[in-house]
Design a binder for these strands. Structure first.
Length: 592
DNA sequence: GTAGGGTTAG
């Protein structure tokens, strides 16, 4: 019997195209497309939609759009697929444009019923909104989701939480999340991520507990965000606990969570734990290396950071622009000016990374800190960028260290123009005036701050004991062990005085009486936190403190002496870097 | 048939 060969029909072929998409075989997909045309099936809507999807995922956006444009009567799946293609290839404006066009056709069009939008459409478009950080459009999409009754769909909830979060609207994200009452893992992850990226580490950890109490099983995504929450809180014990849970759950730690863990331990003040975590990552990526090098830089271990960088190069890993910022940063914190110059001038040739604004800012900071103010200014004048706040900030810092009133006032003026709301500029300038004995200048700044209503941003410090984070604000007595803390400071005042500590009352800009001022200064948040550390941890244990601003000059001096008097290692993470106080000295070498 | 969450610097 003769069996005639069966010709594939359009159903078979569209199924095969989907298979190619799944197998990421774009070449095969293209071949089948040829078949479809040859057999005259290319006008079949199912096949065309499959092609739009296939080209977007394993071909080119151009081909995807071209097939889409050839569809006579695109249905909602065609639109969703082509929009998803734009999102996938990060043509977010294109995605929004198509979405608008699609809406235009939502009414009664020349083909009759419009295609409308469904949950898939909104969920896809929300991703573009997140990437573009378009908060205005996000609000519109939210309204549209409510109008369409999609607010309880997990994809939509997750999309809205994510988009609001990326647009910097964490309160809206949190409202959507709470109202949805979802128990979806991805929505929880998005919300936890929003909190941790918004500096609300406590909220992130709380939500993680709630998630567990609901019996939702976490995965590696959740942990990478959680480690970031620990990093932002500088919560070392928390990071360790979460790390133990990851190990217990038997996750072979994935690269993202591993990188977050390295970063977290470094930011929590333990560079040794960070390095152990780093060594345990099976296949280290450029992010792992950058995190490790950046961590060492922040801790002031410049030479070690450079060694790490060389090790990375030996392993054949190419640095990116962030790695090189970290390398320069390492040179900066360790005062390695010559090395920095070498890396800066050869980075393009050796690593094909063109110096960006960040690299210039870093290099200017290095030169300025080292007292090479002329060289720094020359770089400012010759670089291909307009000097930004980072550059003027670096110059202001250099002017403070090297007591250069002219440069200081110039930089401060520029900075106040660029960032009028920040009080730190005024305070640094006051420091410069004070160190030059220009008290009328200090008084003038005090007046300017009062008149222009620039409030000194409240300094806060944190100290973690077991799994609790204790917060301190200047002069605050509400801590349960407040009495003991103040008694400890009182007890320290005599040995401090004997060791040469003189309160630097002059540069304090609080508008209060002189005597009141000395008291305030002595009860700065970082001093309270350190005193608490002394009474709440066993003798000899390191004390880890985090501050939301730069550590103040007076506290820096005092804590150096306390480290000697109390024989304690004291680690303070301020907004810029770590200060390791030991035996009367600080790892920053007093340049920060 | 079309849709979702995570990492490094300043």
């Amino acid at each position: 019997m003769i069996v005639s060969q069966t010709q594939p029909n359009e159903f078979t072929l569209s199924t095969m195209i989907n298979a190619c998409t799944g197998l990421e075989d774009g070449r095969q997909g293209r071949k089948i497309h040829g078949y479809l045309i040859k057999l005259g099936y290319d006008l079949d809507l199912f096949s065309a939609n499959a092609l739009v999807d296939m080209y977007a995922k394993v071909g080119t956006l151009k081909d995807s759009v071209s097939v889409f444009n050839g569809i006579a009567k695109a249905d909602i799946v065609s639109w969703n697929a082509v929009i998803a293609g734009c999102v996938l290839l990060e043509s977010h404006d294109c995605a929004l444009e198509l979405f608008r066009e699609m809406n235009k056709e939502s009414g009664v069009s020349m083909y009759g019923e419009g295609v409308g939008v469904n949950q898939t459409t909104l969920s896809t478009v929300l991703k573009s909104i997140a990437s573009l950080q378009a908060s205005h459009i996000c609000r519109q999409m939210h309204a549209l989701s409510l109008k369409s009754g999609f607010e309880y769909n997990n994809y939509i909830v997750n999309g809205l939480v994510d988009a609001y979060g990326k647009c910097g609207q964490s309160e809206d994200a949190s409202r959507v999340f709470k109202e949805s009452q979802t128990s979806d893992l991805l929505a929880f992850t998005s919300m936890i991520t929003v909190y941790s990226q918004d500096g609300q580490g406590e909220e992130a950890l709380k939500l993680y507990l709630e998630m567990q109490s609901q019996g939702i099983k976490p995965d590696a995504f959740v942990y990478s965000s959680l480690f970031n929450a620990c990093a932002s809180l500088s919560a070392y014990e928390q990071a360790k606990q979460v790390h133990v849970q990851v190990l217990k759950l038997g996750f072979i730690i994935d690269i993202f969570a591993g990188n977050s863990l390295v970063n977290s331990y470094a930011k929590c003040g333990s560079i040794d734990d960070a390095e152990r975590a780093f060594r345990e990552i099976p296949e280290r990526s450029i992010v792992s290396w950058s995190a490790m090098i950046g961590g060492m830089a922040q801790h002031g271990h410049g030479r070690l950071a450079l060694q790490m960088f060389n090790e990375m190069l030996k392993e054949g890993v190419a640095p990116n622009h962030i790695t090189l910022v970290s390398v320069l940063c390492a040179c900066n914190h360790a005062g390695l000016v010559t090395d920095a110059k070498r890396y800066f001038s050869s980075m393009e040739e050796l690593f094909s990374v063109q110096p960006m604004e960040e690299h210039y800012a870093c290099m200017i900071d290095i030169l300025g800190r080292a007292g090479k103010l002329d060289e720094a200014m020359e770089l400012v004048n010759t670089m291909p960028y307009e000097a930004n706040a980072a550059v003027w900030g670096a110059l202001l810092g250099a002017a403070r260290i090297h007591k250069n009133v002219d440069l200081g006032s110039k930089a401060a003026e520029m900075l106040i123009n660029l960032e009028p709301e920040k009080s730190g500029t005024h305070i640094l300038l006051a420091n410069i005036y004070a160190s030059a004995g220009m008290w009328d200048g200090v008084a003038k700044i005090r007046k300017v701050m009062k008149d222009s209503n620039v409030k000194k941003e409240p300094g806060m410090s944190w100290m973690e004991i077991k799994d609790k984070v204790h917060t301190f604000i200047v002069g605050d007595r509400s801590h349960p062990r407040g009495k003991e803390i103040y008694a400890k400071l009182e007890e320290l005042s005599e040995p401090l005085r004997k060791a040469g500590y003189v309160p630097m009352v002059e540069t304090d800009l609080h508008d209060v009486e002189e005597r009141e001022k000395a008291k305030l200064l002595y009860h700065h948040s970082e001093k309270l936190a350190v005193a608490f550390g002394l009474i709440a941890t066993p003798p000899g244990a390191p004390i880890r403190v985090k501050k939301n601003l730069r550590i103040c000059l007076d506290c820096h001096t005092a804590i150096k002496l306390v480290s000697k008097i109390a024989s304690r290692e004291i680690i303070v993470r301020d907004i810029n870097r770590f200060h390791h106080f030991r035996d009367g000295l600080c790892s920053c070498g007093d340049y920060w």
